[in-house]
């Protein structure tokens, strides 16, 4: 069982690496959105420090959503997804492997880039640390919740915008706790509560989302 999951995970990672636009485009998108905000507002240090956490979080949200649209699509369009029904592998395992691979190659680079962006927004060391911790705990939830939306819109021709409508409202709690942490630390407040809440959200979605996703995947084969 585990080895199947691992093999699927490796296969998906390999595919992401072969189709590098999958990783690079959302990452560039992330950097570009982050860079546009100061242009639209002002370069005022204090302002940037205040909004920095929120802006970086929103950029992560949007770039992850872009990548999520693609997470099942290649295998679905090639007809690979339906073949899993004829094997010992369950669609839940497939979904988990894909979400994990997606997280490693899409969210992880953004977490690594976050300090760079944070510095550009004049966040202090504590804030950057908390930002990265928040992203580490929060992005799996985003990937898990997003995978449900991606599976639901899989057999729609223009699912991209619909995906945004479906999942962005669900991302709100993660955004609130994640960005809230950065501002709280800026004000010298403790962030234990937010960290635990982000962790709880992650485990909650980890235990429920894969089943919803696999059900939605099965449903998408009905055409």
């Amino acid at each position: 069982m585990t080895s199947t999951l691992y093999r699927l995970f490796l296969r998906d990672c390999k595919h992401h690496l072969r189709k590098q636009s999958d990783i690079l485009n959302p990452l560039c998108f992330f950097v570009i959105i982050c860079s546009l905000f100061p242009l639209g507002l002002s370069a005022d240090r204090e302002l940037l420090n205040t909004i920095g956490g929120g802006v970086i979080w929103v950029s992560v949200l949007l770039s992850m959503m872009m990548g999520l649209n693609q997470i099942f699509r290649d295998d679905y369009e090639a007809g690979v997804l339906e073949q899993f029904l004829f094997t010992h592998t369950t669609l839940t395992q497939v979904a988990l492997a894909k979400i994990a691979a997606f997280w490693c190659l899409s969210a992880l680079p953004m977490i690594i880039l976050a300090p760079v962006m944070g510095t550009a927004y004049h966040l202090n060391g504590d804030q950057i640390l908390v930002l990265m911790m928040g992203l580490t705990l929060g992005t799996p939830t985003l990937a898990l919740l997003g995978s449900i939306g991606a599976a639901l819109t899989l057999n729609l021709k223009n699912g991209g915008v619909l995906l945004a409508i479906l999942i962005l409202p669900l991302f709100a709690p993660v955004l609130i706790f994640g960005a809230g942490m950065v501002s709280a630390v800026g004000m010298g407040l403790p962030v234990n509560a937010q960290l635990s809440l982000l962790g709880a959200l992650m485990f909650g979605s980890l235990s429920l989302a894969p089943f919803a996703t696999s059900f939605a995947l099965k449903n998408s084969l009905d055409y």
Binding site: I148, L152, L166
Partner: peptide, 9 residues
């Protein structure tokens, strides 16, 4: 079915 899943989520 799709809508039902979304509603429950």
């Amino acid at each position: 079915k799709s809508t039902a899943i979304l509603a429950i989520v």
